[in-house]
């Protein structure tokens, strides 16, 4: 119901700045009111949300690929059922988020096209390969763990449909992290080979997980206005620090070593100090040069192209049924 009718279409950049309306809009945000799809909003607020929500949706969808890679090779039926359920959840998260973005007057097809043409980005983390079963543990523990850190504040985002989607998502995410940590701890307490697998996964996933929070506050371009609009509540660096502080003890409890020689508890700040992040690697991965970037896009494009006949056939079938029903009704009259 949100995508039709009442929304005023605003073309990028051409709409004159309406300072009075914008002031009223900001006052509503400051008063912690929720903005709903049919409410007036600045064009830039709309644009920012479409970009952020659709990127988030794309990430959930592409994020199914690295984990889907291990569904058929899960070591037990229990693990397989859990992984299948988790990947299915991620597909659902993608759908909730696309639906939230669509309330802002973009179509699902436009959004999907932006992903498939490479115009839209998705989280850098899903461009890394899942080489061993331990990687599935590391993803649940670290990647979903980082996602949860990011997503909990979004449940209070000023845009109603996004906030409501995030509440659903956060409820479902906690099982994801726990199942991942269970996998990692089982390996870490297993044979020396299994423990080495867990350590290897941590070695490879730790830094990419920290990059999930995005560039350092000193370089992030979108932060200030996003904070003012209450789309974002905490800075990238604050969330990253929170994640490190929560996660490091969980790793130490399993006897795992983080691949950062400078990682050290700071009694003064009550935080873990950590070493420099390789932002060049981040830039490379974001711009499509991650280890699996091309493969991910190829897989998504292939799935979309090969599903085209199913989408068309379903529509044709529905149309046929409608006309048959109409004919039957006419004959009965």
């Amino acid at each position: 119901m949100y995508t039709q009718g009442l929304n005023t279409h605003e073309t990028q950049g051409t709409s004159p700045v309406d300072t009075e309306r914008e002031a009223r809009f900001q006052a509503r945000i400051d008063a912690d009111e929720k903005i709903e799809p049919n409410d007036w909003m600045p064009a830039a607020y709309r644009r920012t949300l479409v970009r952020q929500i659709s990127q988030h949706a794309h990430s959930e969808i592409v994020g199914m690929l690295p984990e889907g890679n291990w569904i058929t090779r899960a070591p037990t039926l229990r693990r397989k059922a859990a992984l299948l359920a988790k990947v299915q959840d991620e597909g659902g998260h993608g759908l909730y988020l696309y639906a939230a973005a669509e309330t802002l007057d973009v179509t699902r097809e436009e959004l999907v096209e932006q992903l498939l043409t490479g115009k839209a980005k998705y989280s850098s983390i899903f461009n890394y390969p899942t080489l061993t079963w331990a990687d599935i543990g590391a993803i649940g523990w670290l990647v979903d763990g980082a996602a949860i850190m990011n997503q909990i504040p979004l449940c209070r985002c000023s845009f109603g449909p996004y906030a409501r989607a995030m509440i659903r998502i956060c409820k479902e995410e906690s099982f994801h992290q726990r199942q991942g940590y269970e996998i990692i701890s089982t390996l870490a307490r297993g044979t020396p080979e299994q423990k080495a697998m867990a350590q290897d996964a941590l070695d490879r996933w730790w830094w990419p997980s920290l990059m999930m929070f995005g560039p350092s506050d000193k370089e992030s371009q979108h932060s200030d206005t996003s904070m003012r609009w209450k789309i974002k509540r905490f800075s990238n660096d604050d969330l990253r620090q929170k994640f490190i502080d929560a996660t490091v003890p969980q790793g130490h409890a399993l006897g795992l070593v983080f691949p950062d020689a400078q990682l050290k508890w700071n009694e003064e700040t009550k935080n873990f100090d950590f070493g420099p992040i390789d932002w060049e690697e981040f830039r490379q991965v974001v711009s499509g040069n991650g280890p699996c970037s091309r493969d991910r896009m190829r897989t998504r494009r292939k799935a979309h192209a090969e599903g085209a006949w199913v989408r068309e056939a379903a529509l044709a079938h529905a149309a046929k049924r409608r006309s048959r029903d109409a004919a039957a009704k006419l004959a009965a009259e």
Binding site: Y2, Y96, A99, E102, A314, H317, A318, R322
Partner: peptide, 11 residues
């Protein structure tokens, strides 16, 4: 609770 796309009400 939300919305979704489908070809008809049954789907």
């Amino acid at each position: 609770v939300g919305s979704l796309h489908a070809v008809d009400a049954e789907m």
